[in-house]
Design a protein around this nucleic acid. Structure first.
Lengths: 191, 191
DNA sequence: CTAGTATTTGGACACTTGCCCAAGTCGAAT
DNA sequence: ATTCGACTTGGGCAAGTGTCCAAATACTAG
């Protein structure tokens, strides 16, 4: 079989995915073109449609790959904390790294938006977020959280994205200042 | 002077704005083209660049006009309530009308996103949201809210948009189920 | 009526887009 | 050396883009 060829193929495919992840925040979901992503990846324009059926397919695969890793990381770090309050604090600290105008934040918002028009993306992203919420919810139960853990997990995730969204408009909005309010939400039912 | 001409001019200009507001949720911010918006407004393609310097200019004006009216309405209704808890309940009820996939929600998210790349839009939208938060904050003080009213107003606004964003992915997410958590945030310091 | 202004028309311009494909490269198997 | 399959190349195509503009229209003022 063609061993080295296939390996190189996987490598360029990955470079296309990486280029797409970098490009979406820069020029927007709809601004990523065949030639642009090919140039960024250092390959000929035709390669894009050899590895992916369409530019949209490439973007969906790249986006879902990114969020999958991000959500896994967040869930792992979050549920590693013993105390709920401490976990919320950590999350807020993490949130201060997402200004709403940094590449990661922009990519996430672009994906939320594109998901409303791309059923495949909506299902994929919805499944990932659902898994994240379920993980957080069961962790809340373990920690002795009283109240609706599913609602709490959903509120936590939604608050994160909402704060990120508003920080894009008002860079002066300090996540730490909102910490007290968030803790008040969980403190009542936390262990 | 040309009276009727000017009047008709203002009318078609407004129809272009209305068409843009309707079109952005349908095809996306970047999907609104000169010919598309002209057709929707029932005018010739050239009219767009007679009334607006560019398609982007039209979109910015249309978007800011929409959010201005929306935020004014929300602020008015919200501050009309005497009780903070009652106001939060009303807001949650209102939120259930924004599924995250309805035209209004989509337009708002599109604007948040476009604002990151259009300084003029970011400033305009930021100013509107800032005014909304200030109104809510001073209303909280009036109602005897204890704690940081600016932070509370910011958290309220961010939560709204965050919930809206997540409802787009998970239609089963019920805003009412999150009401308790939101009230817990404000109840502590409310009158 | 004529002159003048505001608005509208529909087409032209140069340019970019996604996707396709014949030809070429490269390593592995025979 | 030859064949084979995976991968890559660079150009071509039809369709669509934003913007511009000369001509047509509609209206007011004199």
């Amino acid at each position: 079989m063609a061993h080295l060829s296939a390996e190189r193929g996987k490598a360029t495919r990955q470079r296309l995915l990486d280029a797409a992840v970098a490009l979406v925040p820069e020029v927007g979901w709809g601004g990523v073109t065949t030639r642009l992503v090919a140039e960024r990846a250092g390959v000929a324009p035709g390669v894009v449609h050899y590895h992916f059926a369409s530019v949209t397919d490439l973007l969906v695969a790249a986006g879902l790959g990114f969020t999958s890793g991000l959500l896994d990381l967040l869930a792992t770090e979050l549920t590693a904390r013993q105390d709920v309050g401490e976990a919320v604090d950590w999350l807020l600290g993490e949130l201060s790294r997402y200004s709403g105008t940094d590449p990661a934040s922009l990519l996430v918002v672009e994906m939320f938006l594109a998901a409303t028009r791309l059923p495949e993306l909506r299902e994929g992203l919805g499944e990932q977020v659902g898994r994240f919420r379920a993980t957080v919810a069961s962790w809340l139960v373990e920690r002795g959280y009283r109240g609706d853990p599913a609602a709490a997990a959903a509120m936590l995730a939604a608050s994160m994205d909402g704060i990120m969204l508003h920080r894009a408009l008002d860079p002066g909005l300090d996540p730490a200042a909102l910490g007290g309010l968030l803790r008040a939400m969980f403190g009542k039912g936390a262990s």
